[in-house]
Design a protein around this nucleic acid. Structure first.
Length: 391
RNA sequence: GGAGGGAUGCCGGAGCGGCCAAUCGGAGCAGACUGUAAAUCUGCCGCCCUAAGGGCUACACAGGUUCGAAUCCUGUUCCCUCCA
């Protein structure tokens, strides 16, 4: 399968072999494969990073397999080891519930709602007894955890390692048992957890699942993994202009990765794009194609075209956008006050700074006097993409 | 239970009595340039004011010492490591 990625070629080969065999077996039994991927709910929105596996789920779905979208309503609560504040956990639980809902809805931008089973792992994990946990724990040794890279590093730097972190793979692993999964997808960093699932499945007398892992998507800063908390993400629920614009803002050198992981283009085309980049083609036009493709996936072709037009107009031609928000002003208002009040700047100090830096203009004319009175019916521009029309 | 270490701006992390609104890096913002909101370079980056200048609030919290404290002392809260 295009895009799957294992650090270890042996595992990859093994998994490929097992997957072929499982497909044959399933066909004989006249049943589809049961495929799933689990998502912890740390933020209310899905972003492009999540879509790598969701898109793979969709592929399985298109082949007629039984796709389960598992939301980690339970695992999310034990996942974050830094959060031990039990007083807050009730509120967190509530939030997780809400976010889980929006996760499912957003996932249906990719998956077929009719054919997808949405599962919440709190449904089964919260019912396990301490005895179950002990039983599962007997499948693993502490050494297996200690050799992990991240654990090693923290051991060396004296950072805390929480017991609950060791329990996390058990909880996640039980998902695979409960679902009787044939195949589980996950990010490469999840390999350890995915493999733990196999052990538990065997322990419970099931055939171990096939694990497929996929690369972690780098964020639009080109440095860290995409995540909401780092702010380097593109949410699939964001407006078309935003998705388009944010895609245009990724560094040129990660463009190919984005093509590979986030669009449907095939290998031949990918090779072609690669060649174009290497031969010094203008990355801008390729990136526009990428931005268009991604925007289209989540908003449709029409909106994608509009987003592209908007980008060309405002960014490339530095013209004003078609629609500018109107803001009602009082008679005696200075430009610095207006910018602050309307929220174009976070504070008066910032407004002053922006004016000093030459970032503010009225009807295309740069403003250098912060006390300038603003008339009605003019267009204010702050920086590259903040606009306002006074009324 | 015992011993030690720590809490600094969005994040990481200096500073260890005045030169601190606080070094530096990241993020963010702006300008220039351009091939795009890429890259690169430069600047900004607590809040308020009639903004060349002035004021206020800030270095976990509460007190204290001092002409003067992020820096010293006392207490409190929280966190980490090690031993048991």
């Amino acid at each position: 399968m295009l895009g799957s990625d294992f650090g270890d070629p042996q595992i990859k080969e093994q998994m490929a072999k097992e997957l072929r065999q499982r497909l044959i077996d399933a066909k004989k039994e006249g049943r589809p494969l049961r495929v799933y991927c689990g998502y912890d709910v740390t933020a209310p929105d899905l972003h492009l990073g999540h879509t790598i596996t969701i898109r793979k789920l969709k592929q399985f779905q298109d082949f007629g397999h039984d796709v389960n979208f598992v939301i980690g309503t339970f695992t999310t609560l034990i996942g974050d080891p830094s959060d031990r504040d039990t007083a807050r956990s009730a509120a967190i639980e509530e939030k997780v519930k809400q976010n889980a809902q929006s996760y499912a809805e957003q996932a249906f931008k990719i998956l077929d709602k009719q054919k997808t089973r949405v599962r919440y792992n709190n449904d089964w994990l919260s019912k396990l007894t301490f005895k179950d946990v002990i039983n599962m724990a007997s499948c693993f040794t502490v050494q297996q955890f200690l050799v992990r890279d991240r654990i090693q590093k923290r051991l060396e730097s004296n950072d805390p390692i929480w017991l609950r972190e060791f329990l996390y793979p058990l909880a996640q692993g039980y998902d695979a048992v409960e679902l009787k999964a044939d195949v589980q997808l996950g990010a490469t960093e999840q390999l350890f957890n995915l493999m733990a699932c196999r052990r538990l499945q065997e322990f419970y007398g099931l055939k171990p699942q096939i694990c497929l892992t996929f690369p972690v998507l780098v964020g639009i800063d080109g440095a860290d993994r995409m995540s909401k908390s780092r702010g380097n993400y593109i949410g699939i629920d964001e407006p078309p202009e935003t998705i388009y614009g944010k895609t245009m803002s990724i560094p040129d050198n990660i463009m190919l990765q984005y093509f590979e992981l986030l669009t449907d283009i095939d290998e031949a085309e990918l090779g072609d794009i690669k060649k174009q980049i290497e031969s010094g083609a203008n990355p801008m036009s390729l990136k526009k194609r990428l931005a268009f493709d991604i925007t289209k996936q989540y908003h449709g072709e029409e909106k994608a075209k509009e987003a592209e037009a908007h980008f060309e107009k405002t960014v490339q031609n530095k013209e004003l956008p078609d629609e500018i928000e109107e803001y009602k002003i009082t008679d005696n208002i200075t430009i610095s006050q207006l910018i602050t009040q309307s929220g174009l700047a976070a504070s008066r100090s910032e407004a002053m700074r922006l004016i000093k830096q030459g970032a503010v203009s009225i009807d295309g004319k740069k403003v250098d006097d912060a006390n300038l009175n603003v008339a009605k019916g003019v267009t204010i521009k702050v920086g590259k993409r903040r606009y306002l029309k006074t009324v």
